[in-house]
Amino acid sequence: MKINSIFDIHKNTDFEKITLEIFKFQAKNCTVYNEFLNLLKVDIKSVKSVYQIPFLPIQFFKSRQIISSKKPVQRIFLSSGTTGNTQSRHHITDLTIYEKSFTIGFENFYGNIEDYTVLALLPSYLERDGSSLIYMVNDFIEKSNKPKSGFYLNNLDELSKILIELDKKNEKVLLIGVSFALLDLVETFNFKLKNTIIMETGGMKGRRKELIREELHQVLCKGFGVEKIHSEYGMTELLSQAYSKGNGIFECPPWMKVLTRDTEDALTILPEGKSGGINVIDLVNINSCSFIATQDLGKTYKNGTFEVLGRFDDSDIRGCNLMVL
């Protein structure tokens, strides 16, 4: 399969066709996924629909090498592991696919990254190695080619001055930050921003008490003086991102799709509007596994958008313990 065909998807029929092709490829070439399907007694030839594809529990990235390619590994992306759990490891054999995914994905929602000054407030990610988010944002900063673009670790005073300065000049600014760091910023400084996109990447990373999305966004809207807070939905085990331009409703790029599964029966896909575990189809994961059952809870809608409602613990996941991790 030509990788470019993934990025040329425009219709649901294209998505379904390529998804089934990738499923058959990974069922044969990804050892762990093949074992998983065999334990489920899945007849690969009988899978004719996206809704019949089994999703690999995301926990396997913590204990096994999930890979479908014979090419050498170029980079291993690591999860934060802040809760004391084992880190997930995503083995990447072609970084150019990831770069193309996050570049085109961002452009689909926000336009050319070169038009923005990119300010990154991601201390918890910068303080460790192997973050796929840092890799993406660093590429954004380099492509933006603006003098003020960069990472701001603890220098909130400098960051606040730059935000106010660029906003007054009517320059387009993207401030992307982890939730606790954005809260630190608005607790110290007040803003009235008109030309700046505030994008949170979620999570307190153990630094603060977790807030529900509505409460977090309300505080950030007031602190930055903006009407909406944008969000990015991604994870170590994926190579694509979904974006929300407000209200916590996420939209996927054409090569990514979110479904929800029954929390009591992991192999049952729920209809739109029903809350359940989030399953992600990420076709850019062609060299690992494109079908991931995450530990997030959410709800999907008929127009293809979705909402993240929370997370559930390992002890709450049923129907996934078919292989010893």
Rank of each mutant, 00 (worst) to 15 (best):
L119E: 11
V324A: 13
P72G: 11
T263G: 01
G203T: 03
E171D: 08
F106R: 03
T305D: 12
P72E: 15
S131H: 10
D167S: 01
R213Q: 14
L183G: 01
S315Q: 09
M199P: 04
L322E: 09
I286Y: 05
G277K: 04
G202L: 08
K172D: 04
L121C: 13
D314E: 13
L159W: 10
L95A: 06
C30Y: 01
S179N: 06
L95E: 13
L193W: 05
K245S: 09
T117G: 06
F109V: 02
I113V: 15
I104T: 14
R261Y: 12
G248F: 07
A266F: 14
T86Q: 12
S149N: 11
T83I: 01
S46Y: 00
I212C: 11
G150H: 05
I292H: 04
G111A: 12
E264I: 02
I113N: 08
L163Y: 05
C289I: 08
K222A: 07
K192V: 03
N12D: 12
V32S: 13
D184E: 09
T268F: 10
D316I: 00
L78E: 07
R261N: 11
F291I: 02
K228P: 05
F102V: 04
A266Y: 13
L20A: 09
M235C: 09
P54W: 04
L126K: 13
F189Q: 02
V50T: 15
R208P: 03
G234Q: 01
I164L: 09
F250N: 04
G319Q: 08
G177Q: 08
G277C: 08
Y33S: 11
I134Y: 14
K143F: 15
S131G: 13
L40R: 15
T117M: 06
G246Q: 09
